[in-house]
Design a binder for these strands. Structure first.
Lengths: 300, 300
DNA sequence: TATTTCCGATAGGAAAAAACTATAGTTCGT
DNA sequence: ACGAACTATAGTTTTTTCCTATCGGAAATA
């Protein structure tokens, strides 16, 4: 049962004539007759009674007509939709975000985006970098928002912005009194870090190691709010991304920049190098860039 | 957009691989790849992202997948239905019947038939012979139940049964006293006939003319119940088919057979000579024959 | 009734489409 | 870096579809 056979069939049913149907379908009458006969033999049913000059549907033909018109209508609809889809921002958009970015950057970005493009359905996946990169490689998500570095030849990395990490400590901490805090001053401090799964945990640790001291780790937590709570409770200090600092409305913590060397992280969009880019993807990335540029320091 | 392209497309989407899809579809991998590419160019959209070893749907592909599976499911369904239809008594059955037969023969026949074959939908058309024959020729009805003679080379005529016409008169009529009524006795009577449109009207008139007398027509009515009422009211006599006589529960009319020559009419099924016969048609005709044979005199 | 017209089916050959084999060019895991 | 796995390309063959010409039957016309 082929599509053109259904087209010919409907044409005959509607015109009541093989000749007129052939004309309408821009084929010769014998070609059309053959295709109808082929369809009939495939279905094991006569579809038309050839009553001399007139051609009428058999009962089987009437049954087929309903389905045939439905099928052709669906085909037409999907073809139209596909043509529209070329330039329309629509469809599903699967985004992966790391947990130390998700709650600060995404809600407002998604709200803005959906207001502008209500035809898009966003599927959000929050997970650690490793998982997100695997998902991007596997094609399970359209794009991942993670922190650099990302080293995978299969992925295309596009930096969005760089934000500083702030030294966070409890209100009344000895370092909080100083105007300028140097890295050296942190040697004696106990650090509260995220678990090794989270890139931010490792970033802070490796930042310290690069400056040649091994941070004393008081505790490794699974999520940033817990880290902040522990800091407020006086259990230690940490380096906190600016977007988290700005979201922090509590008076129990204070933030200081490091005077001598500024730790920072760069947030980037990552997608599969071979993945086709839909208008929705393009627009969303553009929005993220704009949003990053507004409040933070963009970086090439 | 061809059916096999949709089949290939769904196979790739489900297996996540061109090679495995080709295997499933029993074609070579290059053939399948080409058809997918052809489909993509026809729709103006990439359907899959070829991510090295893995193949995943694009957004457009996801959209198409929904429609494609729906279309293929409908195709499969209709093919199954068509195969069943070969031997199943089902579908629509358009029947035409003349008014002097319809109310007596059809209700019980249809009820019996539908109880046996509930999958059939019967469309009843009640009209005079001329119209019914035209409808049969045009293929608008599957079969017509009319009275003979029918002279049209395009139609196939199958007699069902022959039934006598009874002389009907008002209770207390002078002829009602006689045991045997002869044709000769009718010369003086006034006849109540159906209009010329109805075959029965002409049949009675021509029956008389064949016996070489012109009936005196008191009135020509549009339907048989009216004729019966007028007879009861003493306005005249008529010749009434046996099936109408048997349906007559009134005491105000009496019926007599004609002694010398028995007028009769033969009821037949008529259908287009070239029309394909469905199981439903075959079964319905068989039922009519059986029904006719039970109560009346079948005729070859 | 004979004739013309209309229309679908058939026959045979041409064109188009889809299939295959072989192989090139990637990607990706070891 | 090598080899296995996979898709794309090239060139050819097979299958399918389409066309022209014509037949044959049915219906309208003369």
């Amino acid at each position: 049962m082929e599509m053109h056979q259904l087209r010919y069939f409907v044409a005959v049913a509607e015109t009541g004539s093989f000749s007129r149907a052939a004309e309408r379908c821009h084929v010769s009458q014998p070609s059309l007759s053959q295709q109808i006969m082929k369809l009939e033999s495939r279905l094991g049913q006569r579809l038309f009674d050839r009553l001399g000059r007139r051609v009428v549907l058999t009962d089987a033909g009437r049954l087929l007509l309903d389905h045939a018109t439905a099928i052709l209508a669906e085909v037409e609809q999907v073809e139209r939709q596909m043509r529209d889809a070329t330039h329309t921002v629509q469809g599903k958009l699967a985004i992966g975000v790391i947990p130390t970015v998700a709650p600060y950057l995404l809600p407002s970005a998604i709200e803005l985006f959906l207001r502008r493009y209500p035809e898009v359905e966003i599927l959000l996946q929050e997970d650690v970098t490793h998982q997100l990169l695997a998902a991007a490689v596997a094609g399970e998500i359209d794009l991942a928002i993670v922190a650099l570095p990302v080293a995978d030849a299969r992925l295309r990395v596009e930096p969005l912005f760089t934000e500083p990490l702030w030294l966070a400590m409890p209100r009344g901490h000895r370092l909080a009194r100083r105007k300028r805090v140097r890295l050296e001053d942190l040697r004696a401090e106990r650090f509260i870090l995220l678990s090794e799964m989270h890139c931010l945990g490792e970033q802070v640790a490796s930042f310290c190691r690069q400056r040649e001291f091994e941070p004393k780790v008081a505790c490794r937590s699974a999520q940033l709010p817990t880290v902040l709570s522990l800091i407020a409770a006086g259990q230690g200090i940490s380096l906190i991304p600016e977007m988290a600092k700005e979201g922090d409305r509590s008076k129990r913590r204070v933030y200081r920049a490091l005077a001598d060397s500024t730790p920072a992280r760069t947030i980037a969009v990552v997608r599969h190098r071979l993945r086709h880019q839909t208008p929705a993807m393009r627009q969303f990335i553009q929005l993220l860039k704009k949003k990053g540029g507004e409040t933070r320091h963009p970086q090439p």
